[in-house]
Design a protein around this nucleic acid. Structure first.
Lengths: 115, 115
DNA sequence: TTTAATATATATCATTTATGTTAATAAACA
DNA sequence: TGTTTATTAACATAAATGATATATATTAAA
């Protein structure tokens, strides 16, 4: 046997991972996901940090929710989001690593959860 | 100053990286890119490894070329492709890391360039 | 208990872009 | 010319996107 694994399995995994990449392959969703690696964040805070207008933000958050990548928690009037897929954190850290963005890898000086 | 960097710069980088992710967020292109992390590979070899029918393969290779992620070399009748963006290698290694695919991180037992 | 205010979510719609399928074309060489 | 290898074209369909309007939920106030 020349192949290291069944081609179907390879294709199956490629489909899974490419689906995840597709969810992240959008400017706003990527911004959101990056912001969330810093910890749980409220929607209005996300709006301020990413500069994404609210309806867009909300829609992209919905997509991230549907993809199972984030989850939400309501606290009175506010809704707080956080990453809910450990793979995502690793992936984003790798992205920051590779592309020199902010994030833990780059050593930032910002606090979080100061509201 | 509360923000660690200008929001425009953040958005700009998000757009760049999300563009790269978009190129990879397709089952066949991801398969191709993963295969190429093993080294330069001919088209027909790619076809055998990925199970992607040849015209599709060729079209996705064209897209990867347009995105500057791969480059091609012709040798008589065959065309050999290789990754041409170092970032891509790092990214794919990170993906393999995070999602437990094949690739250097997983220690495979396959030779390359055996044609 | 209506009204208002704030925060978030969803809907609508026009436009663009991606996708899959299949067919045709080109390049190299025997 | 014929054969192998690879690329591009054509076209229908689906999906993503952006912009904007509207709706819902929660709390406070009248």
């Amino acid at each position: 046997m020349t192949k290291p694994q069944k081609i179907e399995e390879l294709q199956h995994r490629a489909r899974e991972v490419s689906g995840l990449l597709k969810t992240l392959s959008h400017q706003n969703r990527l911004l959101i996901a990056c912001a969330l690696t810093e910890g749980e964040t409220g929607v209005s805070e996300l709006e301020a940090e990413t500069g994404v207008p609210q309806p867009h933000l909300s829609r992209e958050l919905a997509r991230l929710r549907e993809a199972g990548l984030v989850s939400a928690r309501r606290e009175s009037k506010n809704v707080y989001y956080r990453l809910s897929d450990a793979r995502l954190e690793r992936l984003i850290e790798a992205l920051c690593d590779a592309f020199g963005g902010r994030g833990k890898a780059a050593g930032r000086t910002r606090r979080r959860k100061t509201r």
